[in-house]
């Protein structure tokens, strides 16, 4: 595996009022690595992910992505964000724009691509997620699973080095989950650096290079899927796995 460090998080603390949600997280993510973050709800894993592209501003600590500290207010966060794609639990497709316009907006506005170039790219991306027929469709006419795949295509349009997934399948009907996970697996195979917050343990086992267990605002244990799922050491992790795997 390439050992270049892509994302380095040092002693990240995030508080909301009196509530300390992240209590000093340290994490390194290497190039091309797929890291899956698991943990009980309310453990702070989504907040952690949202700090990585500064949708939430860190209270203290450092987050260095490609040698730029995004916790530093002087960093041009918009530039950094162009290289970090994010996929949300509720898709958040722009409801005033069509499917193709959703994908083309950022490349045209930020990369100064021509409409034609961006349109060609949108077609390719839609083909990749299996939705080329939806090019001109409205967002409202798509199912949840389709919307999420368009959202992934939208994030990929900026050619990011890192993709963040915030519970991408939690809001989907069960029969839609497979299509979205399939697209994510494909991305992982292509070598995309991915940080995925999810409850899909099957996905974690199959795709993750490393699984990180977060509870109570801190990383309690991390390791390969085999170490985490077959030989958990932390009692909280054992307890968590018992609950999610033996339903």
């Amino acid at each position: 595996m390439n050992t270049k460090i892509k994302v380095k998080v040092s002693h990240l603390i995030k508080t909301f009022g009196d509530n300390q949600v992240l209590k000093g997280i340290n994490l390194e993510v290497h190039d091309n690595e797929v890291v899956v973050v698991i943990g009980p709800s309310g453990s702070g894993k989504s907040t952690f992910l949202r700090n990585l592209n500064r949708l939430e501003a860190p209270t203290s600590g450092a987050i260095v992505i490609d040698d730029m500290d995004i916790a530093d207010p002087k960093t041009n966060i918009n530039k950094v964000r162009e290289n970090i794609g994010m996929v949300f639990q509720h898709f958040n497709l722009f409801s005033n724009l069509s499917v193709s316009e959703n994908i083309m907006l950022a490349p045209v506005e930020l990369q100064k691509k021509t409409k034609a170039e961006a349109a060609k790219q949108a077609k390719d991306l839609l083909a990749m997620v299996g939705l080329e027929s939806k090019y001109d469709a409205t967002v409202q006419s798509l199912s949840g699973g389709q919307q999420q795949r368009v959202a992934i295509a939208r994030a990929l349009a900026m050619n990011p080095d890192v993709m963040l997934f915030d519970e991408p399948t939690s809001a989907l009907d069960p029969e839609m989950v497979g299509d979205v996970l399939e697209v994510m697996k494909q991305l992982a195979k292509q070598g995309m650096t991915m940080i995925v917050v999810t409850h899909e343990m099957g996905f974690a086992k199959e795709v993750a290079d490393r699984v990180v267990f977060v509870d109570d605002g801190n990383i309690q244990e991390q390791g390969t899927p085999d170490e985490i799922f077959n030989h958990p050491k932390d009692p909280r992790l054992q307890n968590f796995l018992n609950k999610v795997l033996n339903v």
């Binding site: 964000r81 162009e82 949300f88 958040n92 409801s95 939208r154 994030a155 900026m158």
Partner: peptide
């Protein structure tokens, strides 16, 4: 307008003003 619209626009790297003009204001 749903907060998620602004978050999605900002996560792509769009500055506040552009996100406002292209995504939030039209809605």
């Amino acid at each position: 307008v749903d907060d998620g619209q602004m978050e999605a626009a900002r996560s792509l790297g769009l500055p506040f003003g552009k996100a406002m003009r292209r995504v939030i204001l039209p809605q």
